[in-house]
Design a binder for these strands. Structure first.
Lengths: 343, 343
DNA sequence: CTGAAAGCGCTAACAC
DNA sequence: GTGTTAGCGCTTTCAG
């Protein structure tokens, strides 16, 4: 019997040598034409270009980077929480737009807020020889990233920083955004506002809680804090439980997009969506179409991604200026759910 | 004056040679330990591992692939319509999950349904030496992809096929899904149903139109076709215009997710959301929370991505079986907007 | 303006 | 079990 050896079709891309032979020139001349560097006689160049076309030649970027002085691979790594989260996906597109315009490819992966995955995937990106890294950090431990930075890898943080890591970051002012949201509810007369937020080991979640606290204290309002809501379902369940206790809050500050959705679902199921006020952090798709429409503090994730990529490309290009923390402004979208007065 | 030469910090990762020196062994022994191949004495292996740890060594995947027999780079390319479109982002995550589990990295980019970008980015992925390609094709032209396939690159198509390209694909049955949606509206008594769809050069858009036509013909209902709605805004405007003409349709089949959102926005702005029936193709986030909740034919984009990646990995692994077309089932989510009877 | 030779980090083939 | 040598596709250095 013939053993069916799984022999993958041998990749047989043409190499520079093939092009050189086809054009009847030296290999270095091909290199010069392909990279548009140095001076090559117009006639020779034309012959080379024709050969490239005829053989469908494409230069191997990674092989080239092996010997190149700057060792660039023209690629960057992007580590997000989850590429399918609408917020992250917008960041992704912002990064892609800026990187693509500069001729860089993007290698992406999801960390799922798991420090273990971060520890694993950061060096993995390194082993693919990316020229730089954009990271939405999953944990508070700076060592994996620090190690890459020590090896000369430029790193830009998005969405949140990492304590003890001296590097560029692009974030929004979570604390003042949360304070604004809470003050808005207070200005409509609420004095019993619940905070429902994501896991407290996330710096963004902590900053938003801080903003909420500031506003409550200033107004001498009680605080009611429900943290660690890591998904829609938990948020929905927690909201329902909370509203059955008494005295129930008259307003809710939902400090993350999935939490907001869970809260809205719970209110809807209890028929309370027109009784309890809600302000969310992060816009949600169709947030303007539900009834009442959801008032939110919106971020601009596409811009965040774009700025992070531009910062990174500058570093890759040799920018050695001081560490920058870029704060992207938020906007307040007043749509109805946040303007319900207390009963 | 000193010219500030932008000299990027020299990447100085340790190489196998460094590890070999540190451990006092030959370079090939390091290679064997790092790749877990062949037999190495336990004591030697331990010394090597210690040196790897001490120097924070990471093997350079791409340099290795240069000489390796199978030339694998352990990376795949993913070309989507738009990484930030919720549907595409879910496909992305499905691909990442399957690829990541097999130790493959994902290089992604957005084509924006632009054949020009496809022509450009397909060979670009090739030049990064990816081991295979998953593509949501932007245009009807098979040449760029065919060229890669001729060079031995495995290709799997998602969401839609390309005429004239003999390769694996993962799609849903758009035509029967659209027929079902339309029949559903007919069963509620509608005889004047509008079709609002995406650009007709997209195969999916054409198949959905075909399904709509079939159902209308079978019921001897008139057809009312508004194609080429490439975004939310166009869909909204077109819907508003259509409903002001007479006789206006009593139901709408919205054949794409962004179109559905535009339609819902228009109905809402005219106060007709409880008068005109709507069934959408593709689920939309929060579609169950608007009023009325949106009835849709839903796809499972995460599964589509996962199956595509699994198919591709099998091909990369040497599977030379016949071309497969995998059809992922759709599901019908009845939620209210599709069950409004004609006025 | 053009080409030959060396070498990037690694693996294949073959010694010892 | 382990080390040596050659060479992957490319860029660098240095001659012509």
């Amino acid at each position: 019997m013939t053993p069916l050896s799984p022999k993958p079709a041998p990749r047989q891309r043409p190499t520079m040598k093939d092009v050189a032979r086809e054009a009847g020139v030296g290999i270095k001349t091909v290199s010069r034409v392909v990279n548009g560097e140095g001076y090559v006689g117009e006639a020779t160049a034309a012959r080379v270009r024709a050969a490239v076309e005829r053989l469908a030649y494409r230069r191997d970027v990674s092989a080239g980077s092996l010997r190149r002085a700057d060792r660039r691979t023209l690629s960057i790594g992007l580590l997000l929480g989850d590429v399918s989260n609408p917020f992250d996906a917008q960041v992704h597109r912002g990064v892609e737009d800026a990187a693509g315009a500069a001729g860089f490819a993007v290698l992406s992966a999801s960390l799922d807020e798991d420090p273990e995955r971060e520890r694993e995937l950061v060096p993995t990106m390194g082993s693919y020889q990316v020229d730089g890294l954009i990271v939405m950090p999953a944990g508070p431990d700076p060592t994996a990233l620090q190690r890459e930075m020590d090896a000369g890898m430029p790193v830009v943080l998005v969405d949140r920083g990492v304590e003890g890591l001296e590097t560029d970051s692009v974030v929004v002012d979570n604390q003042s955004g949360a304070r604004l949201a809470t003050e808005h509810l207070i200005s409509y007369g609420h004095r019993h506002i619940a905070f429902m937020g994501d896991r407290q080991f996330l710096p963004t979640a902590r900053m938003r809680l801080e903003g909420y606290r500031e506003a409550c204290w200033a107004a001498r309002a009680a605080t009611h804090i429900i943290p660690d809501l890591s998904n829609e379902y938990l948020a929905e369940t927690a909201t329902r439980a909370m509203l059955q206790a008494s005295p129930a809050p008259t307003a809710i500050f939902a400090a993350q997009n999935l939490v907001t959705i869970g809260v809205v679902r719970a209110l809807r199921s209890l028929g309370l969506e027109h009784e309890i006020a809600v302000v969310g952090f992060d816009d949600i798709s169709l947030g303007d179409l539900v009834s009442p429409a959801i008032t939110v503090i919106a971020q601009d994730p596409h811009l965040i991604g774009k700025m992070a990529a531009e910062r990174l490309l500058a570093r890759i290009g040799g920018d050695t200026g001081p560490v920058e923390q870029i704060i992207v402004p938020t906007s307040f979208l007043v749509r109805g759910s946040g303007e319900i007065p207390p009963a």
